[in-house]
Design a protein around this nucleic acid. Structure first.
Length: 273
DNA sequence: CGCCCTGTTGGGGA
DNA sequence: ATCCCCAACAGGGC
């Protein structure tokens, strides 16, 4: 899935096509997508709804409806949204839901692994997401907030960055990239880092996410933009997916380990506790 | 061909 | 707070 930069890219590319449009006809084929609500009920709720704007909170895409409700979409690992000016003749592989808009354009949702979710928040997205998500990393997020969130934690700093309540939107790729840039070992106990090192992590997280957005979310091998194309500038990573290759800073062989049940790549020389 | 491992995530139970 | 498993599938290595 798309981490924050990929979701932001989807939001930006979809917004011009969807804002102000009406979801004329919505069909949902996968009951897991809307669980525990029945897909037919959600499809009926959305059919005829007018879209006010597209928002984003962490890794959630928010389809804000004119009546104050929001459809919160989480792509998880393999979800993707595809917009086309008219419906395709052949359904895209792994299609789980689709919508026809009032201008006859088409919105398809595909998801190989079926981890993604569509939930309607009748009172708006903030109510549904409150408590689950911490600050937006590219908003007014401060070093002091991160220091506070890490204080007392014995878990690895990488595990803390993946905790969406600490900061919203960081996933496995950008966590590794940010820690490499900050020269902090991913297994370092979060609460023991000096303020200086926490500040480096804070700045590196923001820089890594912004770089991902600037590269149009082209972080993932097979990521497609909502228009079906590839990101224009395939982003290069310093450590993600590069175990066994030489560190670009010091030449030491990058090492792979597992932290927080996620594959983790780091430079054992550059990144210290 | 089959088996095993890995994986862009997050919720729930221990 | 933390750790582990799990959801469901594809793709690669052996």
């Amino acid at each position: 899935m798309p981490e924050l930069p990929e979701v932001e890219t989807v939001r930006r590319r979809l917004a011009p096509h969807l804002a102000g449009r009406t979801l004329a006809e919505v069909e949902i084929f996968d009951h897991r997508l809307t669980d525990p609500e029945p897909p037919s009920a959600v499809a009926a709720r959305l059919s005829g709804a007018r879209i006010d704007a597209l928002g984003r909170r962490g890794k959630y895409l928010l389809i804000e409806l004119e009546d104050g409700a929001a459809l919160t979409v989480h792509l998880r690992m393999t979800g993707n949204l595809l917009w086309l000016p008219s419906p395709p003749e052949v359904a895209p592989p792994f299609l789980r839901a689709r919508a026809l808009l009032d201008d006859r354009s088409y919105l398809g949702y595909t998801d190989v692994r079926r981890f993604g979710t569509w939930r309607v928040a009748e009172d708006g997205a903030e109510a549904l997401l409150a408590g689950k998500l911490g600050p937006e990393p590219l908003g007014d997020w401060t070093v002091a907030e991160l220091v506070g969130a890490l204080a007392g934690r014995k878990a690895p700093v990488k595990a803390a960055l993946l905790d969406q309540r600490v900061v919203a939107g960081v996933g496995n790729i950008y966590a590794d990239e940010a820690l490499f840039a900050a020269r902090v070992h991913p297994a370092a106990p979060a609460g023991r880092l000096s303020r200086t090192r926490v500040a480096r992590v804070h700045d590196a997280v923001r820089a890594a996410l912004q770089a991902g957005i600037d590269a149009q979310g082209a972080s993932i091998r097979d990521f497609r933009t909502p228009d079906g194309g590839y990101g224009s500038a395939q982003e290069r990573f310093a450590v993600y997916g590069r175990a066994g290759e030489p560190c670009e800073r010091c030449g030491t062989t990058l090492r792979r380990t597992v932290i927080a049940q996620r594959g983790t790549v780091y430079c054992p020389h550059c990144q210290r506790f």
